[in-house]
Design a protein around this nucleic acid. Sequence first.
DNA 1: CTGAAAGCGCTAACAT
DNA 2: ATGTTAGCGCTTTCAG
Lengths: 325, 325
Amino acid sequence: MSRATVSYVLNDTPHQKIPQQTRERVLEAAQRLAYSPSPAARSLRNGRSDLVLGVLKVGPIGSVVGALLNAMSTRFGTDGLTFAVHLHSPGLRPVSDVWKAVTPAAVVVLSGLDAAEQADLQRSGTPVLVSLSPAFTPHPLLDGSGTRVVCVEYASRAAAALQVEHLVATGHRRIAVVTLTDPQVRQLAEGRLDAALEAAHEAGLPAPHVVEVADDSPQAVAAAVRTWQAEGVTGVVTYNDEVAMAVLSAARDAGLRVPEDLAVIGLDDLPAARSAQPPLTTVGLDAEALADFVGRSVAAVLAGDPDVPEEPTTGFAHLVRRASA
Amino acid sequence: MSRATVSYVLNDTPHQKIPQQTRERVLEAAQRLAYSPSPAARSLRNGRSDLVLGVLKVGPIGSVVGALLNAMSTRFGTDGLTFAVHLHSPGLRPVSDVWKAVTPAAVVVLSGLDAAEQADLQRSGTPVLVSLSPAFTPHPLLDGSGTRVVCVEYASRAAAALQVEHLVATGHRRIAVVTLTDPQVRQLAEGRLDAALEAAHEAGLPAPHVVEVADDSPQAVAAAVRTWQAEGVTGVVTYNDEVAMAVLSAARDAGLRVPEDLAVIGLDDLPAARSAQPPLTTVGLDAEALADFVGRSVAAVLAGDPDVPEEPTTGFAHLVRRASA
DNA sequence: CTGAAAGCGCTAACAT
DNA sequence: ATGTTAGCGCTTTCAG
């Protein structure tokens, strides 16, 4: 019985007919010796490890990101890959440091890589690179780099469009869009704002009021809420649930009834949205569906499939209808 | 110029005198060819990679865990190691799956490994295993396994003791401890409760009222809050800030003034604690200090140091004094 | 169907 | 001071 035989049975190599008896002997021995193959040697030989690396910039991690990470971990586990997240500190150390620690099978960029880092990544030889970053553009000169780039729209266009469509469906014509100026969330905020404006345009609405606020406190939105009465704005789409709850609070202070005088729709479906006053209508994100799509794409590329699965046309968001809109 | 020479200059191998000129030639060539060493080959040769793996069970990730992850990432980066977190689904797949994807330099257990998994880990040959899990006991039979085990107390004993000590210092003698029965947080809740009871005992207090609640809603604590008036309880220590805020809310409903009628102290120092009514006195956790300690311990073990640094006697928590106690 | 053997890229011991 | 070389543990042709 040789190493090769062992390798075959342990890896279930197809088209290799190993007699059942040998097979069992191998398995039994492996079991008895608590044998487990060396990841390092396998990676060296195979050119890649079984690790899928998520990259995220350091910063507050909330329930939305948490759900995403959970979903990815669970999903990749189902096809023999291990998902791990690396939080990188932009400016402090280059992300490329990560590639001297591991040779991942795929990298999933969740946020915060700049153009140069993207290019490095494409050059790094990682088989698949999935980006959720709204502003990510694959480096055109690096097409033949061997890295397959997959971009997925998540938590911006489809979600913001749903917000607007719901207000339109419930009869609102003059709407406001509240966005955040915090540079930490700039990319996402811009993506959502753009999508909301586009959806409004497509629905034939007059150009929405765009309100930029610095944070999600009720004070920050109070002034805007008061002007809306005069402007005839009856529905408002917010950057996220936290901003929506600030609007709810400001509306109450201004003596407006929600949703009769002002309909408010958030985004993220945070746990707190359910217990808001009134319960917040919002758009929830489908972390599992996204993880599934990403998982299938990665598996397809690693298997050498020429084309990756189609992105679901519905996006990865759904309306959560409660009382506020 | 041979591979060895190159290896020496690239790794800054000590006690190898390489002429400056050769050195520069190597560096220049590496630069020009965008050379970067293969992690797989290095891990194979060195017996370990430069990756430190955090293990966490899947589940809601809040700001406390987020801060911990951020601190760890930043800290390990400073000594050439890369930190990544793996979220594992207990029951779904064995954690040991991870060791077929990577050979980490160290594993940091943040939560949720059972006894068998602990033992597997000690057997896996990972150089260092750091555990923050309050219930973690190194497997005694596996002492010679080559895995160095370091246990750190975080977010339980020292923190809960601080809560009690603050109430004692502000003159309270009859106190209540509110703990959570949610099985997801059992270990942590038990650790905190034990420590609080012990601290009360040491301070010579009568045995505290122990209140077990199922969740952190105001309803869940309302009944207990009402009985406290009759029992003469003047101070309450809670499992965390969320429970504390529920107590605050229930106290208000019961017509109690905080802190005059009832002093409340939380744990975690969530962002929301600052804007609670009244601002919540609480115990903050020192994620950076912990990360620093863990980082130093790991570095010491990897460097072959016989003894790891002393754990700071103050623990990794500090009092955040606001208005509620 | 199974055994032998060639490397994957790197480091450290050894020889020059 | 620099070059040569033996493996680390695995997968995969290639012969038998």
